[in-house]
Structure formats: structure tokens, C-alpha cells
Simulated scan of single mutants.
Amino acid sequence: MSTITTGPSAPAEEDTSSSAARWASSLLRSVGGQNVSLIGALAVVLVLFGSLNDNYLGWNNIQGIGEAITIMGLLTVVQTVVIICGGLDVSVGSQAGLASVVSAMAFTSTGSNALLGMGAAIGIGAFAGLLNGLIIVYGRVNPVIATLAGLAAYKGIAQLISDGRAQGYVLNDSIFIFLGRGKVAGLPVMVWILILVALGVHVLLKYTDIGRNVYAIGGNDTAARLAGININKYLVCVYILIGAVSAVAGILLTARTGSGQPVSGSEGLELKAITAAALGGCVLKGGKGGIGGIILAVALLGALENGLTVQGINAFWQNVAQGALLVVAVVIQQRRNGERAVGLPA
């Protein structure tokens, strides 16, 4: 005769469900609500355009998206650093265009020496960043105004030295070919460069005293100054970093297109970088932001732009979508921070 044992199973089920809820809550906290939203939006974009075009989710197109977002991604990563620090740089696109021209012209003038061409580009980029930083810190000029002047000046210099035309031809050089078209472990070299730069900046911000000081300056510059942080030095160094990485983006632009581009390929990158930074969780008044959300935002913008292009939608609509995304990102930030609307009672 068998004995049937009965007992309360509800508590066990409740324990299981509460454990799952705690696990989900812990996962959400570690990933971040902002990043979860970006992952969801990216999934929607991929599924939508994948259902409209069979080739959209193909490996070749995915690699193409990766290559297309690399230059914007590099500029967004360093834009994130300066935004966290409480500043802004709207001249990154012009700096990339100037570096692109310099890399190609130095390459051809030095007997096709790729390393000298790249070194000259990074040098001019770092100098442009240094100039921006000095104007902002010691000229006491608002960062937006100072870098807006840089946007016009660096673009003008690039056009002057190139006569407004593409310069040189670099695709007869193995180094430029490797940078622009090479692959490592199945991924384009350009994508690997973005990954390495993003990881480096992530480690810098999250695990070093330098990163903690950058957050402190953006969060409360008065408290940071009283804590003994040399704010002027940090700001100048941040703008030098932006210039150097913008130059790397310019070198990749040269490698990808085969020649130095004074404007084409770099114009409008500053707006894309700011949009991606805002979407990725950077608070534009400083003190908050991270690289994980930035990479997701860059991927989202790249997937959306590629999908619109694949569907044959007018490129002008991409600008409309980009502007709308920037407004949405800033509105969400304002709501999350509990800031009252301008001109309305709290």
C-alpha cells in the first residue's frame, strides 16, 4: 500500500518566484535601466528592418554597420569623457577632417611613409585639442562657443591646405589597407580599434583616480577644487585626448575612403556624437555617464541609419530621425532628474 505525502508547495513556489524576481532585479541594476531600454530599442530596429529585408541581418551587412559606426563611435567615446567632465566639444568632426587631410598629405610628401603620416595627423589633432582646452580654461570662454569656433576654424584650415579637394591616395600602402579593409578574428580592424579605445576609456573612468576625478569635476567643480583637484589641468588634458582620438578617427576615414577628406565623411559627426552620448545616458550638464550605454547608443544609431539606407529612404530623413532622437534623449534625462520645465512652476 503506497503512502501519498502531501504538503504545502506554495511556499516553495513563492521562494522560487521571489528568487527569480531578486535575480531579475539584480540583473536590471547591474545592466542599468537606460541600457535595458537601449537593448530593447536596438532589438526592435533589428527585427523591424530584418523582416523588411532578408540581407539586413546577414553577416556582411552586420560587418558593414560595424565599420560605418567606428568613426562616430570613437568620437562619441571621447565626447562622453568631456561631457562627464562638464564640457562639450562640437569641433570633433572638423578635427577628424583636418587629421584625415594631414595624414594623406604627409603620407604622400614623405615618400609614402604611413607611420609618419599617421603621426603627423595625431600630432595636429592633439594640438587642436590643446588649443581648445587653453581657450576654454585660460580664455574663460564657454566650451560650446570655443569649440564652435574650432568647428569653423579646423574645417577652414582643412579646406585651405587641401584646396577643398580629396588629397593623396593611400590604398597602395599595406598599413592603410590593413586599417581600412583588414580583418582580425573575423571582425574588421576598424571595429577592433573602437573596442580597444572604448575598453581603455572605460577602465580609465571606472577604475582609476583620474576617472573618479573627472566625475567629481563634472558633478561639482567647486567641491572638486576644494578637494585639491587641479581642474584646469584635467580640462586641458581631456581636450587633448579628444583631439588625439579624433585624429585616429580621421586616419580611419582616410584608410576607409583611400584619400584625405577635408569635409566629406566628417561633416555632421559632432551632432551624431552628442546624440549618441545623450542616448547612452550622459547627462549634458556633467557628472554622469558610462561607456557601456554609449556603445549601445552608437550601435542603435548605426543600425537605424543602415536600415533606412537599405530601404531606400531619403537620406534627409536620417537627419530628421537623428534630431528627434536627440530631443527624446534630453527630455527623458530631464524627467529622470526631476528638473522642472523652463518657465513652468515646479
Rank of each mutant, 00 (worst) to 15 (best):
T208K: 08
R212M: 14
N142C: 11
A120P: 02
N306C: 12
A244H: 05
N337Y: 03
C282H: 03
V191D: 04
T70C: 12
Y234K: 01
T80H: 09
L130T: 08
L115H: 10
L194F: 05
L115Y: 11
V214D: 05
A126Q: 06
G307V: 13
Y207C: 00
L284A: 00
N113C: 14
T76G: 02
V36L: 15
I242W: 02
N213R: 14
A273D: 02
A244G: 11
G312P: 04
A153M: 08
T6N: 09
G186Q: 07
E14L: 15
S30R: 15
M118W: 08
K272S: 09
A146T: 04
V331I: 13
G293C: 01
G323F: 00
P262E: 06
I122D: 01
A20R: 11
A255T: 08
K285Q: 11
A247H: 05
L98V: 05
G123K: 00
G343Y: 08
R340S: 14
A255V: 07
T222M: 15
G133Y: 02
A10P: 00
T254E: 02
G338H: 09
Q159R: 13
K155D: 08
G73F: 06
G258R: 12
S9M: 06
V92G: 01
L74N: 02
L148S: 03
I177A: 01
T275W: 02
Q333T: 12
S264R: 02
I251P: 07
A96P: 06
W192H: 09
S37K: 07
L115E: 06
P262N: 09
L46A: 15
K183R: 10
V191K: 06
A43R: 04
V102E: 05
